[in-house]
Each structure stands twice: as structure tokens, then as C-alpha cells.
């Protein structure tokens, strides 16, 4: 038998860092919602121009819009915390010198910007 010290359900409200931790963990729900919303979008596109327009109109309804705005905030929180942690997971040495953690994080943020710009360019300018 192992003894588990009882922990109050709201232990994470005691400190700001705990709250950020829980919010970061909850960002996974927004990621799952993104998959659902995105697959509904693809389904609508396959059904034709009318269904595609209907999907966009549905997404513009206040309730869905609020859900998407909250989800957007959470996925941005996920991205920022993820790239900030990257230097802890990735230690790079160049000619025996350790690349400063800040550079590793900056590289990830740079990649984020480039990928986002390419996706936006394809969807907004090309199509």
C-alpha cells in the first residue's frame, strides 16, 4: 500500500504559476476542438460551395465565434509555453560551446513565424 497525501481539489489556485500550469494543460482541449472544427470545415468543402459558405456563416455565429476566440487564446498559450520550454529539451553545442537557451527559443519562435506566414500566404493570397 502506498500512502497518498490528500490534496485539495483546488490546489492549483494557490499560486499564479500553478494557475498558468493548469491553463497550459487545458490548452489540449482547444487543440482537440481545432481538429473537430477543421474536419467539419473539410467536410463542408467536399460537399460543395453552398455547404462551405454555410459552414463559414455557422462559424460566424456568436457562440461558435466565442468558442473559437477562446480556443485561439489557448492554442497561442500552448505555442508560447511550448517554444519557451524548447531550450530545456534541446541542448545544442556548436564547436564545443553550448548555444544559449535564448537562441534556441528564438529559433523556435522564428520557425513559428515563418510557418504561419507561409500558411497565411497560401490561404489568403494564393487561393
Amino acid at each position: 500500500m502506498t500512502y497518498h497525501q490528500p490534496v485539495p481539489l483546488l490546489w492549483w489556485t494557490r499560486r499564479r504559476s500553478y494557475v498558468v500550469f493548469v491553463l497550459r494543460e487545458l490548452s489540449s482541449v482547444a487543440v482537440a476542438w481545432f481538429v473537430v472544427h477543421f474536419l467539419l470545415l473539410v467536410t463542408a468543402v467536399h460537399r460543395g460551395p453552398g455547404a462551405y459558405q454555410e459552414f463559414l456563416d455557422w462559424s460566424a455565429r456568436p457562440l461558435i465565434l466565442v468558442v473559437n476566440l477562446v480556443a485561439l487564446a489557448f492554442v497561442v498559450l500552448h505555442a508560447v509555453t511550448w517554444f519557451n520550454l524548447a531550450p530545456k529539451a534541446l541542448v545544442v553545442r556548436v564547436q564545443g560551446q553550448q548555444v544559449p537557451p535564448r537562441m534556441i527559443a528564438a529559433g523556435h519562435f522564428g520557425a513559428w513565424f515563418v510557418v504561419s506566414a507561409i500558411v497565411a500566404w497560401v490561404l489568403v493570397v494564393m487561393l
Binding site: 482547444a30 487543440v31 481545432f34 472544427h37 477543421f38 470545415l41 462559424s59 465565434l65 473559437n68 476566440l69 480556443a71 485561439l72 492554442v75 497561442v76 500552448h78 505555442a79 511550448w82 517554444f83 520557425a111 513559428w112 510557418v115 504561419s116 500558411v119 497565411a120 490561404l123 489568403v124
Partner: peptide
């Protein structure tokens, strides 16, 4: 992959 791709897709298609 979600950190790289999902924010921009959510911003465009969701908002």
C-alpha cells in the same frame, strides 16, 4: 506540430 500550425489555422478559419 500543433504549436507551429494550429494558431494560424485557428485564427484564419475560426475568426
Amino acid at each position: 506540430v500543433t504549436a507551429l500550425l494550429v494558431p494560424v489555422l485557428m485564427l484564419l478559419f475560426g475568426v
